[in-house]
Write a protein that binds this DNA or RNA. Structure first.
Lengths: 159, 159
DNA sequence: AGTGAAAAACAATGGCG
DNA sequence: CGCCATTGTTTTTCACT
C-alpha cells in the first residue's frame, strides 16, 4: 500500500469504476464488461491495490439495521488556532468512533464532522460529553439529517 | 435484497464489523477472528446480504489518485417548500454524479450536499451551472474541505 | 500489454452430531 | 452451531505472443 503517484490508463479507470460500483464482481465479470481478460484484470487490480489507489474494500452496512438511526453534521469552532489545540482536537476526532468523517473547512466553522449515533439522546451525549468538554472546542453547531436522499459515495470519474 | 427487519445477534455484528473493516477477508479469516466456522460465516453473510443489512460491497478509491482534488460541503436553501420543488430538486441531486451524499437537514439550510470535483474551477461550474439555474434553488453556500482528517465511514456499532 | 490454460484457494451446500 | 466432504467458481501464476 505505498502511495506513489501511479499511471492510470483507461482500462484502470474502467476497473475502478466497476469495483466502486460492486466490489463483489469477479475479475471475469469485470473483464467481460470492459473488454479485458480475467488475468489482466487481476494484475491491474493488484497494482492498483498496492499503489493505494484502491484504499480498501468494505461492506456498506445499513445503519438502521444495526440500530443507528441518527446522522448529523456537526460544525466545530476551536478556541484558538494554536498548533497544540489543533493537534489535540485531531487526535480526539480520530479516536471517536461516532465520527465517520472529519474535515477542516474554509468558512466560519473550523471543522465539519459527520457523526452517526443511535438516537438523539446519544447525539446529545456525544456533543456534551465528548466534544464540548475538550479545552480546544469553543462552540458546536449541529444539524440533523432528517432524511438521506443519496448516500452512495461514488466518485465521479471521467474516462 | 429485501428489506425486512432482521434479527441480528452478536455473531452477526462481529461479522459485519469485520466486513466493514475489510471486505476482502475470506469467510475462513472472518471466522477465525470471531470464533466461528467458515461455513457458518458463509450462511450468515448470505442472510445479511439478502436482508439488505449489507447494502453492497465497494472499493474505496483514493479520490486524488483519479484526479479529484476538491471535496466541498454545499448547503442549499430552496425557494419555497412546495412538494413540486422539493421533488424536482431531489431528482436533480440524485442525478448529479458530483454529489456523493445529499441530506435533508434541520436548521437554516434545507439540504446538505457532499460534493467531489476535480478542482475549484469544476466546483464553480457545478454550483453555477448545475445548482443555481434550478428554479427551486434560492441560495447556496459552500465550504471547501482544506484537509480531511478522517474519512473511514465506519459505523460505530455496539456489540 | 495482452491471451488462455493449469494450479491453488475459496465459497457454497448438504449431511451428521 | 461445529465439523467434514463435495462441487463449482474464482484468483493467481505460468507459458506464450
Amino acid at each position: 500500500m505505498v502511495h506513489d503517484m501511479v499511471e492510470i490508463d483507461g482500462f484502470d479507470r474502467k476497473i475502478l469504476a466497476q469495483l466502486q460500483e460492486d466490489a463483489s464482481r469477479t475479475n471475469q465479470q469485470v473483464g467481460e464488461r470492459i473488454g479485458l481478460s480475467a488475468s489482466q484484470v487481476s494484475r491491474r487490480r493488484q497494482r492498483l491495490e498496492e499503489a493505494g489507489v484502491v484504499r480498501r474494500y468494505r461492506a456498506d452496512i445499513d445503519p438502521a439495521a444495526v440500530g443507528l438511526a441518527v446522522v448529523a453534521f456537526v460544525g466545530v469552532a476551536l478556541n484558538a488556532h494554536s498548533r497544540q489545540n489543533a493537534r489535540r482536537f485531531r487526535d480526539l476526532v480520530r479516536s471517536l468512533p461516532e465520527v465517520q468523517e472529519a474535515h477542516v473547512l474554509t468558512g466560519d466553522m473550523d471543522y465539519m464532522l459527520k457523526v452517526v449515533v443511535a438516537d438523539l439522546a446519544a447525539l446529545s451525549v456525544f456533543i456534551n460529553d465528548e466534544l464540548l468538554p475538550h479545552d480546544a472546542v469553543r462552540n458546536v453547531r449541529s444539524s440533523i439529517a432528517m432524511e438521506t436522499l443519496k448516500d452512495d459515495n461514488r466518485l465521479p470519474f471521467a474516462m
